[in-house]
């Protein structure tokens, strides 16, 4: 194999080749870093409030005591992780439907936000919640009881969607 010639934009000077002055320069930088302000957040005590653009767990918008969702099933269709299950039923009103069962499996969800984009009713949006822990797989399937969040609490996200979507 032919020896490849290493070309540098500029050759090292004698002092640079000695290593030691350069190492001392480097140490100056490292030591200076030690006294700069820290970036660590002391997590459980100090929590992060994400901006409106944050995609936390998907939730259903609750309006006037019931969900906006009309059980069209588009979110379930678009979900790349097959996390959503919707079962529709009819209301007393003519041609209106509502979900009897709406479940999101939070172990499958990848927080892509496609359900939110697909929904024609703005009924499913991404919240700010990022603390999700479960002890077993059943607990990770969120039903309507956990998914329904009142409209007032989701104001920021809804406004964000109006503005940027």
């Amino acid at each position: 194999m032919a020896q490849t010639k290493i070309t540098r934009t500029s050759d090292l000077t004698f002092w640079q080749k000695l290593y030691i002055p350069e190492i001392i320069k480097g140490m100056k930088i490292t030591i200076r870093q030690m006294f700069l302000p820290k970036f660590t957040r002391q997590y459980p005590e100090e929590r992060w409030n994400p901006p409106a653009s944050f995609r936390g767990r998907p939730v259903l918008v609750e309006e006037n005591g019931k969900e906006r969702c009309v059980a069209c099933g588009l979110c379930s269709r678009v979900c790349p992780a097959l996390a959503i299950e919707v079962q529709a039923s009819e209301t007393e009103l003519n041609k209106e439907r509502y979900p009897v069962k709406f479940e999101i499996n939070m172990l499958r969800c990848i927080f892509c936000g496609l359900c939110e984009e697909a929904c024609p009713e703005e009924a499913i949006v991404m919240s700010k919640e990022y603390e999700l822990t479960f002890n077993n797989q059943e607990e990770a399937i969120f039903g309507k009881d956990k998914l329904l969040i009142s409209k007032e609490n989701l104001k920021e996200r809804l406004e964000f969607l109006r503005q940027y979507r």
Binding site: T30, Q33, M34, F35, L36, K38, F39, T40
Partner: peptide
């Protein structure tokens, strides 16, 4: 010390 050098705690 490593943490301090990397601006951590």
């Amino acid at each position: 010390v490593s943490a301090f050098i990397q601006n951590r705690i």
